[in-house]
Structure formats: structure tokens, C-alpha cells
Design a protein around this nucleic acid. Structure first.
Length: 589
RNA sequence: GGGGCGGUAGCUCAAUUGGAUAGAGUCCCGGACUGUCGAUCCGGUGGUUGCGGGUUCGAGUCCCGUCCGCCUCGCCA
């Protein structure tokens, strides 16, 4: 029996044709002596099969009566319009296949879980991961895999059309300092030596530019031995890109145009243009370096007004270095925010480092409750600056700028969810640019790269490398969709002299630098072109496209939060002989 | 490494203050039913309460340890 159609394929046009379908028994409905219905499933959809037991061979009667969910079968029969009425829930709901022949390809044991979207939300994820091969049969999982495939296909098309070449880089590389913890692999041939698995192909793609490849693309696995999260996995996939002889703005143009094409081709939606917003502005306006622009509630700086009050919290904050008082106006919040909800916001603010979350309501009688008594001297000006209207509520954060921004940023996101302000059909993208080059690591008492050590400072910032590293702005950029960081990149350093200055600033001695990155430093001296690039997080993009917050949903064979694969049992023991060959042995912890 | 929640039938869950034979739905097994479509109806099988210790006349329930899953802080250039 050779398959002629997929299970989502047959329509009224096919009526009277003979079709052979193959797949899994999704459900069976035994109507008694005369009639059995089977919904047959493959990755394409469901088709109703009818067995008229008075009209088929005895062997088919017997076999069809024994069918159970998830048995694997092939069926041949005549396509016809349904006698029992159309099933609007199915794409094939207007037709059914009147079975003539049935071949049971494989009976199943009673399945521990069923691949049913209706049930799946209730089934423990542990079970779904253990029996991944059953879970993957679900329409939802098949849809996700198809979206992922399609996204990869569109990616390759888009960048190929723009002169990018897909080039593979090695998985067995040399361990690098800084960044995430490496996975390491023992070398059999060199006792005591180790490979590392790449955290990203960063250096290799730069070397490819130096190697004259001009435009590089790779959809590649990256491995970072850090604890996972709901949106993070030790093993994940990047769309990795690099270009030669381009400015930052040219990169933003090519990469920024990619996302609308991707979403249009895969989902058929328009995501619009991405505005370019400086890092500092993103923090000041939304309290985040990856702001969700699908709703308002922007932060306002009311420091000047706050200075005219006698409120101790405000005055203390303003006395701090870079102290500010900032506010969020919540339209209608005086009604929509109960005391309990306000307290929840307070908890959010405190978790973000704020000492508290002062608030005030504005009614037809002016500012009331909360800290209203302190606001008398500035009431009118505050109302004017924030555009306060009757029924609004205003939250305040008073602290050093980073703390106040972070706290109100978190409160803003919390309110976005609490007040249901996010339109789920909206897509809001933006570029965040002008990140600081370095962050001060107070524990280790040294500067660290905000991004990575190969990021070029912005052209006008070179002098600051020595005079004021903390103020030095980099050439890097992030791409943000709906509040999720989806890509990150920069112009790279292509001259050894600048690279050395950055290494020096990071506290890498010349010897260390030569040991760790000697090949790169050397390569930079032999005609390295100006270049830059970016990497998109494929898993994150797919999560957005299919509407899940669980990265494991978009990976065919994901790992748990403790790094186990519940299906295969990895990581597992290794044979002592295997270990001996690798010059490795287990030690007691 | 820290914090929180959870682990009871194949699956999803319940079980009062520590108290009698650990229940229900579903799956599965058997039966009924000729137009169902999350089929329905009747009957039945099914338990190392994650694992190991402890307290107690008595532990699913309390205590200690441990394993596993999820969320989260640290971490993730």
C-alpha cells in the first residue's frame, strides 16, 4: 500500500478518488457492530476514516475493531462527502475516507502520554520530555518545527540573496577566557590538553573576514555551561552573521530589513520599522535596555520638581551622585489599582533595588492619598509635566539613576501585564545602540567588557579608553522585539593597536593576550578589513513567532534545568577504558 | 551555589487535625450501540504515595537526608 495523500490534504475535490493514507490512530469511535470511525493523524493533519463492517473483508473487520490510539496503520479507501455532517474543526472536515483495505504497520503498547494538544497543557513536562517522540507528534509541536524550518529557510534565502556565504566553523576549539563557562572536551592525542566547545563562533567569523570572505552566515549551535532558564538553554542556536567594509548603519540597514522579511514570510505579519534608540534613552524612558514598546507608561524625570518638595525620600535621593526622582503616570490607575495591586508593585520595585514605591492618586479634588501632602508646592507643575488627569495614579522612584530606572522599568512591565495593556497582535521592534564599552566589576576590581573584548569603541570615543573607560560608548547594537533581546552585534576592532589597548584596559597582560588570542592579534596585523556583524537568537525568534515563553517548546530535543536529556539519559557514565584513553579519571568530589 | 513550588494508579488530580480497605476522571480490559467526531452507556483490572532513614499505637500527611521536574536569584563576554 503506497501512500497517495497526507492526512491534511483531502478536500471535496477528491471525492470518488481512491486514496491511501498512513499515520497514527488519533482517536477511534466504535459505534458497535456496524461502524467504526478512526481519525488518522500524520504531521499534516487529521482525516476521518470510516469502516463499514458489513462492507469489508472479515480480516479488516477484525483488525479495525482492535485498533487503539497511536497504532500505526495504512488505509486505502474511497474519498466521499461525510454522511454525518461537516466537522468545522478539521481542514478535512467535509470529507471522509471509506476504508477498503487496512494494514496495521505497527501496534503500539499503551502509550504513557497521548500527543493531544487538548491534553498536553496538563501533562507534566517531565513526561513530555521523557517521551519526546510521542509529544512531537502533536499538531502544535509539528507546527513549531515547521515554523523553525521555514525561518531557517527564509534566513538562508535572504542572506544568500545579499551576498552572504554559509561557512561552517569548528566545534572543537580552544578555550577562551571571560564570557560564559566553557564545556570542555579531553584530547586523546594530547594528554592533559583540552578542546572547548564554542560559546559562539565570534573569533572565527572575524578571521573569516580577514580571510577575505566578505559576508558570512551560519546557523550554528552555541554552547555555554551556565544554568538554564525558561528562555535559556545551555545548547542553543544562533543565526550568526558578519560583514566586511561596512559601517554600523549599513549593518543596521541589512539586518533591520531582515526581521520584517522573516516575519512576513513565515507568519504573514508586518512588524514595521525598528527605530534606533540610544541605550541611555532606553533606560531613561522605559527603564530597560530591551524595552517592550507595545504599551506606554513611559518614565518621566521629575527631579527638578521633586527638589522643591520637603519630602525626605526625594531630597535624600537627589543628594546622591546622579540621584533622580522619576515617575510613571498610570492612566485610570486610581480606579484600576487596588491597594493590593499597589502593594504588589511596591514589592516589584523593592525586588529591583528600590527602597520603596511612593504613589499618589489624582482625583477631581487634586492629588489625594499616598504622599499627596508632600506634593502641595508642586501639584500644578507636576500635573502639567506628566499630563495627569482625574482618575490617574502616579508611581515615583527616588534613587540613583540606575536604581530608579530599573525599579520603575520593572514596575512598568508588571503593570503592562497586570492592567492587560499589551496588544498580543502587535509587534514592536527597535535597535538599542551606544552601549557602554565597559562595566566596572566591583568584586574583581576591574573593568569588564559589556559585550565582548573585540567590540570597537564608537569612532569618536577612542580617547576615552584611557581617560574615562566608564564613559566610553561602543559601536554595539541590540535588536529587541516586544521586550525580548533577539540579536546583538557590533563593529569589531580590526587594528591590533586598538585591540591591545582594550586588552590592557581589561587587565589582560601582553603574555595572556598572546596566549589566548595570539592568532587573532597576529591576524589583525596582516590586512584585516574593517568588519562587523551580529548574531540573532534563533530559539528566541521562534518563541516569539509561535507565542511561547518556554524555550524547550521550540527545540526538538531540549534539556532540563539540570542539563539532563530525559529521553536519552545524558549525561551518562563513561567506560573506564574510554576515560583511560582520554587520560581522564573520576575523582571523589 | 541560594530561594520558592511540586513528585500519590499508565496520565491528570483528590485524600479534613497524623486515624478505618488511599479515591475520582481518563487510559487500558470486557460488554452494549449503524453517523460518530474530546462519542456515549454498563462493568472491571490497575498503587514500592520519587527514594532512604526517623518520630509515633498509627505516616501520603510530621522531621532529617537524597533524587527528579518547573519557576527564580547568582551566573549567562
Amino acid at each position: 500500500m503506497k501512500r497517495t495523500h497526507m492526512c491534511g490534504e483531502l478536500r471535496p475535490d477528491h471525492v470518488d478518488q481512491t486514496a491511501t493514507l498512513a499515520g497514527w490512530v488519533n482517536t477511534y469511535r466504535d459505534q458497535g457492530k456496524g461502524l467504526i470511525f478512526v481519525d488518522l493523524r500524520d504531521r499534516d493533519g487529521l482525516t476521518q476514516i470510516v469502516f463499514d463492517l458489513e462492507d469489508v473483508e472479515p480480516s479488516v473487520v477484525e483488525a479495525s475493531r482492535a485498533l487503539r490510539r497511536e497504532d500505526v496503520i495504512a488505509v486505502t479507501g474511497i474519498v466521499r462527502r461525510r454522511e454525518g455532517g461537516v466537522n468545522m474543526k478539521l481542514a478535512t472536515g467535509e470529507i471522509e475516507v471509506m476504508a477498503q483495505h487496512l494494514e496495521v504497520l505497527n501496534k503500539t503498547e499503551t502509550p504513557p502520554i497521548l500527543p493531544d494538544d487538548y491534553e498536553a497543557e496538563k501533562i507534566a513536562e517531565e513526561k513530555r520530555l521523557q517521551y519526546r517522540y510521542i509529544d512531537l507528534r502533536r499538531p502544535r509541536m509539528q507546527h513549531i518545527l515547521r515554523v523553525r524550518h521555514r525561518a531557517m529557510q527564509v534566513t538562508r534565502q535572504y542572506f544568500t540573496a545579499r551576498g552572504f556565504m554559509e561557512i561552517e566553523t569548528p566545534l572543537l576549539i580552544k578555550t577562551t577566557p571571560e564570557g560564559a563557562r566553557d564545556f570542555i572536551v579531553p584530547s586523546r592525542a594530547y594528554p592533559g590538553k583540552w578542546y572547548a566547545l564554542p560559546q559562539s563562533p565570534q573569533i572565527f567569523k572575524q578571521i573569516l573576514m580577514i580571510g577575505g570572505c566578505d559576508r558570512y552566515l551560519q546557523i550554528c549551535k552555541c554552547l555555554r555551561d551556565e544554568d538554564p532558564r525558561a528562555d535559556r538553554q545551555a545548547e542553543f542556536t544562533q543565526i550568526d552573521l558578519e560583514m566586511s567594509f561596512v559601517s554600523r548603519d549599513e549593518i543596521l540597514e541589512v539586518m533591520g530589513a531582515f526581521i520584517p522579511v522573516l516575519f512576513k514570510e513565515v507568519l504573514g505579519v508586518d512588524v514595521g520599522e525598528a527605530p534606533v534608540i540610544p541605550h541611555r534613552e532606553a533606560l531613561d524612558r522605559w527603564g530597560s535596555d530591551k524595552p517592550d514598546l507595545r504599551f506606554g507608561l513611559e518614565l518621566a524625570d521629575i527631579s527638578e520638581l521633586a527638589a522643591r518638595t520637603e519630602f525626605g525620600v526625594f531630597r535624600d535621593a537627589l543628594a546622591k551622585p546622579d540621584g533622580v526622582v522619576k515617575a510613571i503616570r498610570v492612566p485610570g490607575g486610581a480606579e484600576t489599582l487596588s491597594r493590593k495591586k499597589i502593594d504588589a508593585c511596591d514589592t516589584v520595585a523593592r525586588a529591583a533595588g528600590a527602597g520603596g514605591l511612593p504613589w499618589v492618586k489624582y482625583t477631581s479634588e487634586g492629588f489625594r492619598s499616598g504622599i499627596s501632602k508632600f506634593l502641595d508646592p508642586i501639584g500644578a507643575d507636576l500635573k502639567a509635566q506628566l499630563g495627569v488627569e482625574a482618575g490617574d495614579l502616579v508611581f515615583f522612584a527616588a534613587d540613583a539613576r540606575p536604581v530608579a530606572n530599573a525599579a520603575l522599568g520593572e514596575v512598568r512591565l508588571h503593570l503592562g501585564g497586570e492592567l492587560d495593556l499589551v496588544d498580543p497582535t502587535l509587534w514592536k521592534c527597535l535597535w538599542v545602540v551606544d552601549f557602554p564599552m565597559f562595566e566596572w566589576d566591583s568584586q574583581q576590581q576591574r573593568w569588564q567588557s559589556s559585550h565582548h573584548p573585540f567590540v570597537m569603541p564608537r569612532e569618536d570615543q577612542f580617547d576615552l579608553l584611557e581617560t574615562d573607560p566608564g564613559a566610553c560608548v561602543s559601536s554595539s547594537y541590540d535588536y529587541v522585539i516586544n521586550g525580548a533581546e533577539c540579536a546583538s552585534g557590533s563593529i569589531r576592532i580590526h587594528r591590533q593597536e586598538i585591540q591591545n589597548r582594550v586588552f590592557q584596559l581589561l587587565g589582560l597582560t601582553e603574555t595572556e593576550a598572546r596566549d589566548k588570542f595570539g592568532f587573532l592579534l597576529e591576524a589583525l596585523t596582516y590586512g584585516a578589513p574593517p568588519h562587523g556583524g551580529i548574531a540573532f537568537g534563533l530559539d528566541r525568534l521562534i518563541m516569539l513567532m509561535v507565542g511561547t515563553t518556554n524555550i524547550r517548546d521550540v527545540i526538538a530535543f531540549p534539556k532540563t534545568q539540570t542539563g539532563q536529556d530525559l529521553m536519552t539519559g545524558a549525561p551518562g557514565d563513561a567506560d573506564p577504558a574510554q576515560l583511560a584513553e582520554l587520560h581522564v579519571r573520576n575523582v571523589e568530589a
